[in-house]
Design a protein around this nucleic acid. Structure first.
Lengths: 334, 334
DNA sequence: TGCGACTGTCGAAGCGCTTCGACGACCGGC
DNA sequence: GCCGGTCGTCGAAGCGCTTCGACAGTCGCA
């Protein structure tokens, strides 16, 4: 194997047809008789032909690669991002596309580079901030793009995300159903709110709005991620609000610390304090006790982002905004 | 911006030189006078020229892209993988290469596809198993590759990893220094050992060998990742070995559960039980108490893997095996 | 002064593919 | 039996780049 690569010309010779015929068999852009198609496909298999990606992209002006831009910043929950990433790769393959991985440290310039050099046909951006420096760049790019998350000014962009406001509200509703009257939200670290990251704020807004709807008392606090800080926050909260009996945790790294802290304070879950988390299912399942949770449907979001970007690539219309509904899984913690 | 893309011919015209001259300015493969170089570079900037990646790869037989193959399987610690991934991307950019992300679900065939289609020049594979189905394929590929991790039969391959045996030994040595006589290793879930994943076994071997060296008593156990299972394991261990006073935890997902379990059992860390973890620094720092740990130097490993694969691409010799030494950071848990 | 050895630049030939226009062969309708 | 229309296939013209050989100048040295 792997001497010089097989070219389309060799396939054509082997099958006794013209190069263009092979190309049309592969692309399906012109009708080819069943008989010829067979011969060509047989030759392709016999020779182990794989089209040269560069040649193809040069001739067709399509690279069949999409960029996945994933900044990695403080306070982000890496496992969730990884799930997005693999979901995007899997979905992209279904559309016969590959995925180029871009990180933040090259800055927006990296996006321009891969777009301008025709390395990629389209872009999917993750972890979008309210005032994201990449967003203005996207507007002037010819390549279509989809954002996972929402910037402050999403007009003219295509955005997908879990409906975090609904997720926050769903958690409150669940606690209300269970009869809790005083609840709290432990969210992302303060720095994430300050940066204006959309999902953190939207969860908080949904949470707060739902308190009014259900007539609950509640408070939303940022939450750091070391055990000691979490413990201090939880202890302070329970002291200042003795009647508090429901907790919503929207911080994957802190979830287990919260449970450890409650244990240490002698509060039983769910008898003394009920806990609902917004986090991936596996984290919720592994916790002690397993947590009632709203999962972040990473696979679904990633798949949807790819679907949308592919539609744009075909020139089809897509909605500006796609919000995926939250799903609550009830487990032992409420 | 972004009408039709600027081509090298337009740059050449703008600068008043031949197309080939522009190419040589960019590649540095022939001497060009300082004066001409200036004019060409100015034109490139003025026009915002970016070479067409496909054209370049077609003509030069180099795509300047490397594949990062990262299967995502049960029991793997996603955050660590993500660090590898970003380290690889960052390092690759320093060599003017981009990174194509491949996951497992296309199987080994995906590797063959991207190699045969000249989409990538080289491959970096992560999370290698002892009997990895991708390994035989690599041997017959023309493209150079580097593995992060070791298969059972690494002859003729290039492998990089943290020296997990040394890491396991280092933890034992540390506990011995602190005067502990009876210790235990809580490792990966059983399934990971059964699959023969190298790093899990090597840590255990290093641990076991070091017991003898330091004259300690000890046992190595697999460790599941739900709180309840961890708790059962820890409780069982402390019951069956009352004199046990040192714990090595090589399981990122279980680390916080172990601490929670000890808390619940009324054992203080480090007074009653000392704990050393093999995990990323941020997990160790956030734990309660912050953990003495051997970090998995993901950035370093990723960087080294890229450096090696680039050397191979240049036809240079590289060592078959690169083991990065462990670094122990002492914190509050020992 | 002449001659080889560089230097710096150019022109042209591909790289492997897609796509466009062309063109026989064959069809049905008159 | 002839004509317009498909259908299936072919040949050739690029796509934008790298690289090779060629070739004017220049320079140093005999």
């Amino acid at each position: 194997m792997s001497g010089r690569a097989v070219t389309i010309a060799e396939v054509a010779r082997h099958a006794g047809v013209a190069v263009s015929t092979v190309s049309y068999v592969l692309s399906g852009k012109r009708t080819i008789s069943a008989d010829t198609r067979r011969r060509v496909l047989d030759s392709i298999n016999a020779l182990g032909y794989h089209p040269h990606a560069g040649a193809r992209s040069l001739a067709s002006k399509r690279s069949n690669v999409i960029a996945l831009v994933l900044p990695l910043r403080a306070g982000m929950h890496v496992p969730v991002l990884m799930r997005f990433a693999t979901a995007v790769v899997t979905a992209a393959r279904r559309f016969d596309h590959d995925v180029l991985l871009l990180t933040a440290d090259e800055g927006p310039e990296g996006i321009r580079r891969v777009a301008a050099s025709a390395l990629v046909d389209a872009l999917v951006l993750m972890d979008v901030e309210l005032h994201d420096p990449r967003v203005p760049l996207l507007r002037e790019l010819a390549e279509p793009s989809v954002l996972i998350g929402f910037p402050a000014e999403p007009a003219g962009l295509t955005c997908v995300d879990l409906d975090f406001a609904a997720a926050g509200a769903r958690c409150v509703a669940h606690l209300a159903e269970r009869g809790h009257r005083q609840v709290a939200l432990l969210g992302a670290p303060a720095v994430v709110y300050e940066r204006g990251t959309g999902f953190a704020r939207r969860t908080r807004e949904g949470f707060t709005a739902a308190l009014a709807v259900h007539g609950l008392e509640g408070v939303a606090l940022p939450c750091e991620e070391t055990f000691d800080e979490v413990h201090a926050t939880v202890a302070g909260l329970l002291t200042s609000r003795p009647a508090l009996s429901g907790l919503v945790v929207h911080n994957e790294a802190a979830v287990n610390h919260v449970l450890g802290s409650l244990r240490q304070l002698g509060r039983r879950v769910p008898q003394d304090v009920a806990v609902v988390a917004i986090c991936p299912d596996d984290v919720a399942e592994r916790a002690g006790p397993p947590l009632t949770s709203v999962l972040i449907p990473a696979e679904e979001v990633g798949r949807e982002a790819v679907r949308l970007v592919m539609r744009k690539l075909q020139g089809l219309e897509v909605p500006d905004s796609t919000l995926l509904p939250p799903h609550l899984a009830v487990r032992a913690s409420t």
